[in-house]
């Protein structure tokens, strides 16, 4: 089955969306981190760089996937799983920071829980995960898609 036939085509297109969101989230986190105000993403320069790295990983999968389907699945799966792992870590970090502020009696805003660039990227990654996982395991069994 090729990427031009369903359901792979949808997954491929969704990976394009995910790549754009990830790169966009990374850029916003960096811009916010260097002090530009009014951006709805938590300021985080190193985190932004990691999002750009993940975006590059997904983009490499898309680029190479146009010639070699296995490469798309490999890069796509790894990129998505990393986004989900880092998204979960980011949620724990934001939650812990919020809890610390509450314990110390300082002002806390629950919105910070979901304003990290990683959460932005993780949201579209969640529906893509089962599909790409099936493709990876299918690929490993059959040797092709």
């Amino acid at each position: 089955m090729s990427i031009t036939s369903l359901p792979h085509k949808n997954l491929y297109v969704w990976t394009v969306v995910l790549t754009v969101v990830t790169i966009f989230g990374g850029i916003l986190a960096i811009i916010s981190g260097i002090g530009i105000e009014g951006i709805p993403v938590t300021p985080d320069v190193p985190g932004g760089c990691i999002l750009l790295l993940l975006g590059a990983l997904l983009a490499t999968g898309l680029y190479e996937g146009s010639r070699d389907h296995a490469r798309w699945v490999q890069f796509g799966y790894t990129g998505i799983i990393l986004i989900l792992i880092f998204g979960a870590c980011s949620l724990i970090i934001s939650g812990a920071n919020l809890l610390s502020l509450m314990i110390e009696g300082e002002a806390s805003d629950p919105v910070t829980l979901i304003s990290s660039g990683f959460i932005w990227a993780a949201l579209p990654a969640i529906p893509a995960y089962p599909g790409i996982r099936n493709l990876l395991f299918g690929c490993s069994q059959e040797g092709e898609f």
Partner: peptide, 9 residues
């Protein structure tokens, strides 16, 4: 990041 933040509370 986790080591620092998650242990803070």
């Amino acid at each position: 990041q986790l080591t620092f933040s998650a242990s803070a509370p």
